[in-house]
Measured scan of single mutants.
Amino acid sequence: MFKRLMMVALLVIAPLSAATAADQTNPYKLMDEAAQKTFDRLKNEQPQIRANPDYLRTIVDQELLPYVQVKYAGALVLGQYYKSATPAQREAYFAAFREYLKQAYGQALAMYHGQTYQIAPEQPLGDKTIVPIRVTIIDPNGRPPVRLDFQWRKNSQTGNWQAYDMIAEGVSMITTKQNEWGTLLRTKGIDGLTAQLKSISQQKITLEEKK
């Protein structure tokens, strides 16, 4: 169930391209415009997507990853294993993690069937560096609404905000991946996880038929 919630949630996290980005210092504006741009692209490019579902990787690479804190999220997933990894191991892992996100997020976007969304009203940021933004996803086919909290983090150097995690039903996506990959990290280390991520990233994206 959580895996499905995570995939549905990713439908609204794909941010804007650099040329049309919203105010990078306001995570609420980023979330709002990102959702609108993403849904528009999914709707307008269905012919290309249906002809070649792996085209979704391109959308992810162009529109999402430049505005997601990939390395920060990847380091959180590694936890204690990050500090013990060599620079070469980290570089290989982050490259594999990025390719994994292209496949995983692309597969999530393949679930698009006309969903709509509501974003919580903007709250004062103050001096906060981590801000959760509640998004409610509404399914046109009558499924119950899904309420999610996207975690946005302020870059201490640039002042810009980027998304790095999502919490559904009190469970963090980062925590879920830590639990899912924990045994592999304990037995085969970061190299074993890197190899698995490379394998997963090679899987073809498949479209979910409308139910």
Rank of each mutant, 00 (worst) to 15 (best):
Gln69Cys: 03
Asp32Gly: 10
Ala85Lys: 04
Glu63Tyr: 02
Ser17Gln: 15
Ser172Arg: 12
Ile130Met: 04
Gly182Ile: 13
Ile119Asp: 04
Gln151Tyr: 03
Arg90Tyr: 04
Tyr81Ile: 05
Val8Leu: 13
Leu76Gly: 01
Thr158His: 09
Ala18Gln: 12
Tyr164Asn: 04
Pro144Lys: 09
Arg153Thr: 01
Met31Gln: 07
Arg147Thr: 03
Ala21Asp: 07
Gln107Phe: 12
Asp191Cys: 14
Thr136Leu: 15
Arg143Ile: 04
Ala96Lys: 05
Asn26Ile: 09
Gly170Cys: 00
Gly126Glu: 12
Ser156Gln: 07
Glu180Leu: 02
Ile190Asn: 08
Ala22Pro: 09
Lys37Val: 10
Lys83Met: 07
Ile130His: 11
Tyr105Val: 01
Asp191Pro: 13
Asp139Phe: 13
Gly192Ile: 12
Tyr67His: 05
Thr183Gly: 06
Tyr81Asp: 11
Leu109Glu: 15
Ser172Phe: 05
Lys102Pro: 05
Asn44His: 15
Phe39Asn: 01
Asn52Val: 07
Leu65Lys: 05
Glu45Ala: 12
Gly106Lys: 03
Gln89His: 10
Gln162His: 03
Ile205Ser: 04
Arg90Gly: 04
Lys3Met: 02
Lys102Trp: 12
Arg4Gly: 03
Lys188Phe: 05
Glu180Asp: 04
Ser17Trp: 09
Gln62Leu: 08
Phe150Pro: 07
Pro145Phe: 11
Asp40Gln: 10
Ile133Ser: 02
Asn160Glu: 09
Ala96Tyr: 15
Val135Gly: 02
Tyr55Cys: 08
Ile205His: 11
Pro47Tyr: 09
Thr158Ser: 09
Glu209Ile: 10
Asp32Ile: 10
Pro53Tyr: 15
Lys198Cys: 08
Ala73Pro: 05
Glu208Pro: 14
Gln115Pro: 11
Ala75Trp: 01
Gly126Arg: 10
Asp61Leu: 04
Phe150Tyr: 03
Lys210Ile: 11
Asn44Leu: 15
Phe97His: 14
Leu197Ala: 00
His113Met: 07
Thr176Asp: 00
Ile167Asp: 00
Asp54Leu: 10
Ser172Gln: 05
Tyr82Glu: 01
Val12Lys: 01
Gln107Tyr: 07
Lys128Ala: 01
Met173Phe: 00
Gly189Gln: 11
Ala163Lys: 15
Leu56Glu: 05
Val171Leu: 06
Ala110Tyr: 15
Thr175Cys: 02
Tyr105Ile: 01
Gln202Val: 08
Leu185Gly: 06
Ala95Phe: 08
Gln151Gly: 07
Ile137Phe: 13
Arg186Leu: 04
Leu5Ile: 07
Ile205Thr: 09
Glu91Thr: 10
Thr38Arg: 00
Thr129Asp: 06
Pro53Asn: 15
Thr158Pro: 07
Gly159Ser: 12
Tyr100Pro: 00
Ala96His: 12
Gln80Ala: 09
Thr38Gln: 08
Tyr81Cys: 04
Gln89Cys: 11
Ala34Met: 15
Leu125Glu: 14
Arg50Leu: 07
Val146Tyr: 11
Lys29Pro: 14
Thr176Leu: 00
Tyr82Gly: 01
Tyr72Asn: 05
Val146Thr: 06
Asn160Met: 11
Thr175Ala: 00
Leu207Arg: 14
Gly189Pro: 09
Arg57Gln: 14
Tyr55His: 12
Ala51Arg: 10
Asn141Glu: 07
Pro132Leu: 07
Phe150Ser: 00
Ala34Ile: 05
Asn160Gln: 14
Tyr93Gly: 02
Met6Gly: 01
Ala73Val: 02
Lys198Asp: 08
Leu193Glu: 13
Ala19Arg: 02
Thr176Tyr: 03
Asp127Pro: 09
Thr58Tyr: 08
Leu16Ser: 07
Pro144Ile: 05
Ile138Met: 15
Phe97Trp: 09
Lys128Gly: 14
Ala19Val: 11
Met173Pro: 01
Thr20Val: 13
Gln203Trp: 09
Asp54Phe: 10
Gln46Val: 07
Thr20Trp: 15
Glu33Ile: 15
Ala85Asp: 03
Arg147Glu: 01
Ile119Val: 06
Val12Cys: 14
Leu207Ala: 03
Ala163Val: 02
Arg186Asn: 05
Arg134Gly: 04
Arg153Glu: 00
Phe150Met: 06
Asp23Lys: 10
Pro27Trp: 02
